[in-house]
Computed example of a mutant assay.
Amino acid sequence: MPGVHKKPTISFRVSDIERAQIDANIKVSGMTKQNYFVKSCIYNRICVVGKKETIYPLVEELKTMQKNLVDLSHQIEKDEGVINLEELTNLEEQYKAMLSAIIKMLGAAEYLWNPNKKSPKQ
């Protein structure tokens, strides 16, 4: 059916200068816009600003993940079978993505606690 997409759309606004820079990067990359954006979002370097507003959402996400895993563990121990295979697979994909993002972010911020790592500004 035309106009119906099975996958969600991500959109954002940019300035004219940012748009020109993005378009230039896409052109020299040789990729389609879609592939460029996906690869950039997944594989580009992350700049971590060490402040409460950045860290707090990660802590909250980890708390939620911990609670969900504890609940799931209790269900498995009691053999309640509340979660089905599709839900478990979906949960696994979500957690892999979140953990991967957190690991990347922590890697980018390693200069904060590792004296051998240089700040990205240096």
Rank of each mutant, 00 (worst) to 15 (best):
Q66G: 00
Y56R: 06
V38Y: 09
K6L: 11
S100W: 02
A101F: 02
H74L: 03
N114W: 03
E93S: 15
M1P: 10
V4L: 10
L62K: 03
Y36I: 02
E87C: 00
P120G: 02
T9C: 11
E93F: 15
L112F: 06
D16H: 11
K27I: 09
T89N: 06
G3H: 13
N84S: 09
N25D: 13
L69F: 03
G30Q: 09
K96A: 03
K121T: 13
V70S: 15
K96D: 08
P2M: 13
H5L: 13
N84G: 03
N84E: 10
E80R: 03
T54A: 12
A108M: 10
P115F: 00
N84K: 12
N84L: 05
A109W: 00
S29V: 07
Q21V: 01
N114G: 04
V70D: 03
A97Q: 05
K104G: 02
L106G: 06
K104Y: 01
M98L: 11
H5E: 06
G3W: 12
G50R: 11
G30Y: 14
R45M: 09
L112R: 11
L88Q: 12
K78Y: 00
P8I: 01
G30H: 11
S40K: 10
A20K: 12
E80H: 02
P2F: 00
T32C: 08
T9E: 14
K67Q: 10
S100G: 03
E53F: 03
Q34I: 02
K63M: 01
I22C: 07
S119I: 13
S15R: 15
N90R: 09
K51E: 14
P120S: 03
D79H: 12
P57N: 08
V70M: 08
K117F: 02
Q94R: 15
S119P: 10
G107R: 06
K118S: 15
K52S: 14
D79C: 05
